[in-house]
Structures are given as structure tokens and as C-alpha cells.
């Protein structure tokens, strides 16, 4: 029976700790143990019964989704925010460098606008990705 508990611990290990998680773990262990008892009653060896109960359990992803309460979505939103911030800083630095080179080497011809338009696609793309993810 310890094997069941350790399997359940394994399934739940990357879900953030909460009361709901502990309650669900206890519930699942109890239900699995009961199932194993039933299988043993039907003539299975304990080892086989435990394995069957664990294999039959199914994909833990559904539970993660419910327990996480949309944690994954929140993380994605944060990540896009960081991408956007990085793209703004990055493009500002590149444009700044272009302006500097432009005025330092050839102040009579204004050419820095061309690379500027090219570089601006970067934050623009990130902005719209961030916007799409926000909704």
C-alpha cells in the first residue's frame, strides 16, 4: 500500500501545495486502496492489483488543470510580458546605437530611420502577442 501513496505523491509533486491538494491526495489514496482491495478479492495478486489500479487511473493532467486554477495561463501571460519588455529595451538600444553612428560618422545624411523601421517590427510583434495572450 505504500507503493500507492508514493505513486500519488509522484503525480502531485509539481502542483503547488495547498489544502485542496492534500485533501485530494488523501481522497485518491483512499479510493485506490479500496480498489486494490476489491481487485484482490477478485483473485488478483496484491502486486498486480496495485499496478492495475495505478495504470487505470489515467492522465493526471486534467486534475492539474483544475487544481492549478489556471496557473499555466497566468505563467504564460507573465512570460509574454517579459518578452515585450525585453523587445522594447533591445530595440531602443539598437536604434540608439544607429542614431549615434549616424550622427558621429555622417551627420549630413539621415539614414538611421531605415534600420529603425526594420527593428520596430520586433517590439510590435511582441506587443500583439502579449495583447492576444491577455484576452
Amino acid at each position: 500500500m505504500r507503493k500507492i501513496r508514493s505513486h500519488v505523491e509522484e503525480w502531485f509533486k509539481d502542483i503547488p501545495d495547498s489544502e485542496a491538494k492534500e485533501a485530494m491526495k488523501a481522497e485518491i489514496v483512499q479510493n485506490l486502496e479500496e480498489k486494490v482491495q476489491d481487485l484482490i478479492h477478485k483473485g488478483k495478486a496484491e502486486e498486480d492489483a496495485i499496478n492495475k489500479a495505478i495504470v487505470d487511473f489515467g492522465d493526471i493532467a486534467d486534475i492539474k488543470e483544475e487544481l492549478g486554477g489556471g496557473q499555466a495561463a497566468r505563467n504564460a501571460r507573465n512570460r509574454y510580458g517579459i518578452h515585450l519588455g525585453f523587445s522594447i529595451w533591445g530595440s531602443a538600444l539598437i536604434i540608439g546605437l544607429m542614431i549615434f553612428i549616424n550622427f558621429y560618422t555622417s551627420p549630413d545624411t539621415i539614414w538611421f530611420v531605415y534600420p529603425t523601421f526594420g527593428v520596430l517590427w520586433w517590439p510590435l510583434t511582441m506587443f500583439y502577442r502579449w495583447l492576444a495572450n491577455k484576452q
Binding site: L32, G58, D59, A61, D62, I63, E65, E66
Partner: peptide
């Protein structure tokens, strides 16, 4: 029904 699905449904219904 897969048990994993079942517990996910419980969570949702309870919420």
C-alpha cells in the same frame, strides 16, 4: 471513467 478525469470533475463541480 478514468479516475483522473473523475477527480477533475469533482473539483470543477465543487468550485
Amino acid at each position: 471513467i478514468k479516475e483522473a478525469t473523475l477527480y477533475a470533475v469533482f473539483q470543477r463541480l465543487e468550485r
